[in-house]
Design a protein around this nucleic acid. Sequence first.
DNA 1: GTCGCTTTTGCAAGCGTGTGCAAATGCTGC
DNA 2: GCAGCATTTGCACACGCTTGCAAAAGCGAC
Lengths: 334, 334
Amino acid sequence: MSQKLFVSAQEVAEKAGVSRSAVSRTFTSGASVSPKTRQKVLDAADALGYHVNHLARGLMRNESGIVCLIVSEIGTPYRSALLRALTQQLQNSGKVAMLINTDRSDGSADLALRQAIRYRADASIILSGLPDKSITDLCLKNGQRLVLINRDDDREGPLKINLDDADAAARIATAFVRAGCRKLAFANSQAGTPSLMAREHGFVAAAKAMGLDVMVERFGHTGYESGRAVAQQLLTRKERPDAVFCATDLLACGFMDAARHQFSMSVPDQICVAGFDDIEQASWSSYGLTTFAQPVDMTAREAVSWLVSETAESENHTVRLHADLVWRTSIRGG
Amino acid sequence: MSQKLFVSAQEVAEKAGVSRSAVSRTFTSGASVSPKTRQKVLDAADALGYHVNHLARGLMRNESGIVCLIVSEIGTPYRSALLRALTQQLQNSGKVAMLINTDRSDGSADLALRQAIRYRADASIILSGLPDKSITDLCLKNGQRLVLINRDDDREGPLKINLDDADAAARIATAFVRAGCRKLAFANSQAGTPSLMAREHGFVAAAKAMGLDVMVERFGHTGYESGRAVAQQLLTRKERPDAVFCATDLLACGFMDAARHQFSMSVPDQICVAGFDDIEQASWSSYGLTTFAQPVDMTAREAVSWLVSETAESENHTVRLHADLVWRTSIRGG
DNA sequence: GTCGCTTTTGCAAGCGTGTGCAAATGCTGC
DNA sequence: GCAGCATTTGCACACGCTTGCAAAAGCGAC
């Protein structure tokens, strides 16, 4: 590394002919400093290229300004969209995002949270994976805040943001039946996360309430390829479904592609398809997928505003957001 | 925030019955500490839930372990894939990623880099936007390292990672001609980044070398909708192109969708299409897009290995990577 | 000029860590 | 037991910053 170190407040103070406290106060909002010295400090700082050392500031204030985002499958459309919204909101609130990728092993969420603790992150937002109870307890005990997105879990302390998955599933079941469909199917992955399972159970329950059975098929992880695989399983059955609700838009895209190009089926004439997330591709004209829009901006806003709020400690807070149905062309009628 | 502060090395030392230096040394690799005390410290630390304060450590060592990723359009397939690879590599090297979103205004890249300086980031990786010279100079002067990905620029000091865009463009021009196409077009956005323009110019030049003209059309920013718009401009011309090279896969997807669904054209029979990036959607069977694969993993590896290397300072380093042609079904023959 | 009051300023004590240096400890061979 | 050596340990200072506290400075009124 270069010999030349960063310029410190001390040097600025000397150049401006004031005490070190003065320069510190100049860069601390709400501190008492006269306009005259303030200007002297600002000039000197600019000339020297001074920037407050947030490491040291965090050390003193016991508040780093860092928020950890713990996320897997970053390359996925929905995840990256959420990531975008979160970083945007965090920056608006003067926080900075530390990104931790948990794609690797299974204990990686714990490792990630430990990293968050090391950097004294003010908070962590978990978009994936369920950390060990001992770790989250440690976070909470040390005044860190925790947000769990779509990760239903029974811990006390963290903010949990969820969707009305079951309601949405019921709505889509109704839509299928109105379109004249009677042979319903549900396409899922084997990930088994709470939100995916809530959609599945909600759909099956709603169908049962209308006197219909549901063929459920699960495969692999939650991606395009799994959608194709599930299509192969469902569409080679003796009795083909005439409507399928996919737990995710990616699954739905894979399913539609297989149905059309591999089984030469027409969507929505021969089979109706619905998804969940409203990723960008759902609106592409090759798909025109009817789906539920994840309120990513709202989610990000809720998460961040809770993180930066003064109060809101330790009460068991859960936010349930509504997913709007976006009607396109993959279901008949409408 | 909670009254209970984080546990410090001091408390661990007291509980273990050793000096504070001992616990510090226990958590510093390569420090001299006997196995016996080391174990005592480890036990005490575990019992108390101690974690080294990286803020303080960074302050002392003048090396924070933080690397800033400065990126816009995080939700885009290519960007998020690169992000995934970079965070992966950084974590492998014991670094941690600070994510900075520059979607907002134009000066946001500068603001972002300034944030990086405040946290004494060891390095910054810029995936988008060109920061002001004064800021990058400041980074470099203070021993920060800088990596520019696909952002050709004439500064000295940073590592620049680029692709052989022009070569790729020439290859695809040849492929078009071999497929019997003579009326070539290039679809671009108005972003005007170096790599996009290199593809355009390379394509036009290669075509000219073969005695062919190219219809060039640019629209908006680099996304699906712009692809559709460009299609509308190109396909309503008196003389329609029979082959179009899109500067980006997203543009290509938009173009193909418009060509097929809006103009009822068949790809590749009536028009051949090629893209660039090899995003996941390019392989989806609705597109089957022939495209060039961005070597994201290689890019990430090059960037990170340079960042953590001891040497490699101040020499003007440029890495030019090769983009493999991925042949699918959007071009005839092959 | 002096008094009372408000605002500004400087001092110094921390925050939690790494590390050079000297003292202490352990080990080996007589 | 003791000299000679390698290893471990503790002390104390440094890193760059914030902030309580008291001294200093400004200001208006008498």
